Amino acid sequence: MLSYSLRRLLIGVGMLLALSVLIFVLLRLTPGDPIDAYIDPNVPMSPSDLADLRVTLGLDQPLPLQYLAWLQQAVMGNLGYSIQRPDQPVLGLVLSRVGPTVLLMGTAIAISIIAGIATGMISAVRRNSVADFSFSVLAVTGISSPPFLSALVGLYLFSVYFNWLPSGGMQTPGREFSIGDLLHHLILPAMLLAIAQTALIMRYMRASMLEVLNQDYVRTARAKGVYEFWVITKHALRNALLPVITLIGSTIGLAIGGAIFIESVFNWPGMGLLMVNAVENRDYPVIMGSTLVIGACVIIVNLLTDLAYAVVDPRIKVG
């Protein structure tokens, strides 16, 4: 287990390196000169001043040397400073936004796992029933709805039309922080972010559960007179979870993409909103730092997903 984990971590480091190269090159291929992001268009600068600034920022060097200089500082924990906030180091700015995003995504993923597994089990056990048909329709609707559409519709219905939940932010302005107020602001964006993941997990769980329920050991357990509850939860559920665990690990990337839209719509102060603002303002250091942190989180989650296989199914050995 330890050697497997170390090997996967080394592979993850290589993937992060490749990701940093890709993002660095793509940013340099965007239209315009990178130095334009560092200057105030309202303040005239002479060509010599621009040349000096280009030398100071290292933009006069070839692209490979620029990347190696950035990588050298990144390995040491220095991701540079934000262009829009010159007094803010990128690492501190990114880490200050990780907490809200983890809270939002963690809540959404927890909702999607619980709701997806429960509805998938019900649909499989009560196949072709009204409940199965209803959950299937909801799942197709959830899968077909893009995150930005779900966010806008949910915002209008629950915040504008019914006025049940706040329309944005993490807490009510002017009010002292409280867990109740935080949950009041969290519930709507988390539920909207969980829609697509819940639908996917439900469909996979239903298909996996139907396959397991037709296995010989399930029929044997029923023939022995085992209560149906124990047949479902003890014999069928654990074996049906393996493909669902694979899906849960892969939905982390989908959740990150959805979080960008959700945080933008609800003004949630997390990584998604930070990246959107950085892209709009061409804040290259923040884009690079945010991408690395998000990539590292995805790699770690995928590793934990692989290790969870052996916990759910003892027949699987990692190595």
Rank of each mutant, 00 (worst) to 15 (best):
M288T: 08
L210C: 09
L254A: 15
D49T: 11
R97N: 12
V312P: 07
S264T: 15
P86W: 15
G249L: 10
M275H: 10
L71H: 03
L188E: 01
V137Y: 14
I114T: 11
T56G: 08
A240T: 03
L157C: 09
D36K: 13
L17Y: 15
L292N: 06
G258W: 10
G270P: 02
T291S: 09
D33S: 15
A124E: 10
L303C: 05
S290N: 06
I39E: 07
N281H: 15
L6H: 00
V130R: 10
M170P: 08
A194K: 00
T172A: 01
I252F: 14
T246F: 12
T198N: 04
L155H: 06
G92I: 10
M275K: 10
A308Y: 00
G14M: 04
R238F: 06
L254M: 14
K234Y: 05
A69T: 13
L149F: 07
P62H: 12
A278F: 05
P189E: 06
L149I: 00
I179K: 06
D132W: 01
V140F: 08
A310N: 06
A223Y: 06
L79G: 04
W268T: 06
A115E: 11
A223P: 05
A236L: 09
E176P: 07
N42M: 13
Y156N: 10
D40P: 08
P269L: 12
T119Q: 13
M105S: 02
L93G: 00
R85Y: 13
P34W: 02
S96C: 12
G319D: 14
A115Q: 13
Q66G: 06
I245W: 02
L152C: 09
M191E: 01
P314N: 14
V226F: 09
V312A: 11
P147F: 06
L242K: 00
Y204V: 05
E263F: 00
L213I: 10
N214V: 09
G80H: 13
S3C: 12
A110K: 04
F162S: 12
D40G: 11
T172Y: 04
D306G: 08
L237K: 04
M1W: 10
G225N: 11
L57F: 00
V265C: 12
P41D: 12
S134E: 08
P41S: 11
A223N: 13
R206F: 04
Q197I: 08
I109G: 07
V90G: 03
I109Q: 01
I179D: 12
L19K: 09
G77E: 00
L9K: 01
S159R: 12
R238C: 01
V102F: 15
E228C: 05
P166H: 11
M202R: 04
F266E: 00
W230S: 09
M202D: 05
I179M: 14
A51E: 08
A190K: 00
F148R: 04
